[in-house]
Design a protein around this nucleic acid. Sequence first.
DNA 1: CTGTTAGCGCATTCAA
DNA 2: TTGAATGCGCTAACAG
Lengths: 359, 359
Amino acid sequence: MNAGGTPGPRARSSAKTQRQVDIRTPQVNMTDIAREAGVSMATTSRALNDLPGVSAATREKVLRVAAELSYVVSPEASRLSGGSTGRIAVVVPHLSRWFFGEMLNGIESVFRSAKLDLMLYHVGEADNRESFFHELPARRKVDAVLVVGIPVNEAEQTRLSLMGVEIFAAGGQFASYPFVSIDDEKCGAMALSHLLHLGHRRIAMIDAIDPNAEEWPVDGRALAYTEAMAASGHGVDPSIFLRVPWGPEPGADAMAQLLSLPDPPTAVFAHSDEIAFAALRTARPAGLKVPEDISIIGVDDHPISAQLDLTTIGQDVLHQGRLAAQLVVSSLAGGTPMPSAVLPTRLVLRGSTAPPAVR
Amino acid sequence: MNAGGTPGPRARSSAKTQRQVDIRTPQVNMTDIAREAGVSMATTSRALNDLPGVSAATREKVLRVAAELSYVVSPEASRLSGGSTGRIAVVVPHLSRWFFGEMLNGIESVFRSAKLDLMLYHVGEADNRESFFHELPARRKVDAVLVVGIPVNEAEQTRLSLMGVEIFAAGGQFASYPFVSIDDEKCGAMALSHLLHLGHRRIAMIDAIDPNAEEWPVDGRALAYTEAMAASGHGVDPSIFLRVPWGPEPGADAMAQLLSLPDPPTAVFAHSDEIAFAALRTARPAGLKVPEDISIIGVDDHPISAQLDLTTIGQDVLHQGRLAAQLVVSSLAGGTPMPSAVLPTRLVLRGSTAPPAVR
DNA sequence: CTGTTAGCGCATTCAA
DNA sequence: TTGAATGCGCTAACAG
């Protein structure tokens, strides 16, 4: 009976939050724009979704009306009825480090132009990581997951793909799912090659490890270090191969430790620029000049590195982010999948490295 | 006819992306768990949503079955049927600057524990800004918008509130909507007070302006500078009050310009630490020692500031982010609204400031 | 305390 | 090329 034109259940009496009145602007829905455009909902839907089977004139009219009423499809309803969510989850292990901000920057720009919404998730500790992989994919909250800088283990991969969510990676390591990154080993090799060519023999490394991660096979940069040292015939001296948690303090402590050695290194390869900054900062008060007394090289080409005159192995993080996002977009679009990409790194020569002082 | 037990419309032939087969794991839905638990969907829903009116036994049984089948309610369906979206839009003007990363960090942590999803939007240029405010609010994509570091103009506010989306701000300025920030004027006053107390008379400011913004009433830090200089009786010399675009290069250029003056300043107040870094970096090659020849003070207490021994006006960005997010959460929860907050700043005394050299 | 019923807004068959 | 009808999975009245 009430199927006629009566208000019906539309006027919900606002269950829990007894608000004054439900003054919400009447939400424009597809029915409205269909009526306004003088066509059926089916046609409206087709026009809006750019599907075939709609005359140009009709489509244009629908789009115009939709624009006028500033209508946007409800992602919930669209989703429920079988479409995609139009959302991508981006998972990062850190938010206040330059590298991840830059990645987000690149990723966001691509998603924005593809009209995809970016859902940001910060997974640090193991527990929230577990809850992330458990909860997020559930019920298809997103169409895909793009993880930045961290590995996804087997179980997590399985869970995601079971839920129909594709995985992509940026800035991590080579993975079984599509990814974009640099070659950390080559990166390390470049740094070591530079130092060795300068004539350094006693080269230290301050490697940064993530206490929360236990799955990355081996840190490529550290691997390159040990290999290069071994290959050069100098061998790896454990006392100058330090692995510390990421951060300024641990980095500074490691540097101090190196400098206090009876036979300190003449050069230091820092896992990343931010660690190198700490090393630079520690060398000076210790009475050492960079690069005269000790050379320091980092990785990233952080914006501040130029200001500190730090020699580094540069990578184009923004580009990695963009490329990874494009990987996602193109894959979702369904065309031929883009291949994973390994981006080049480059030696950025500045003033923090020089030949060792003659003894 | 096909209403019986035939595959029916479930086995969609995947319109655009002719995938191999639709091998998706059969999604468990509420109907399944209701059947399995031997109760109705309504009861199941109530049990799952922790609503009253369900016997303890029944509830437990439902929860157990749900757990066994690792079932999670579909947020889409749940929302469609009348709830909120559970999503908050966070709008930032920059992504690769420390300040914004730290803000995101704080914000994300609160949203995560409140089980809200964070949708990240980067609005830089005016055009994408316009499209953001035009597209986003429509159709309840989010329950609220938290803007970081930028103002929202009247039109944008109107548009959002019309769509039933509440606005909140973090790290910006005082606004008509709920916000959390520091007092930029007081912040500037602290810096100036410090320099004046040290005995500086000729104090420069390198202010960073955002070329894209035109709406912030007046930059509080710059205002404090001009006021303090005027109040101290030294007046404002336009030749040492520089306003440049944010960034290392503009900052360095500004510093170089100051140093090339016939009567260079003895102290520099930089809009933010990152500008101060550039200033530090520029002073040295020019043959000036910091702080002996020139004092430099920044704002933020960026992690690298400690390493560069930069005196600065510190602010707790992480806390601002958290507080702002809590503002959103509590408001959405519907209880008594939390008040806007102005967080304190502090003088972080380091080695880049000292009394001016006696002439 | 529990089940029945009716949509939420949209995409998608199928028939026209 | 279009329209009418159906259901996506769930919540919220309303009865029992």
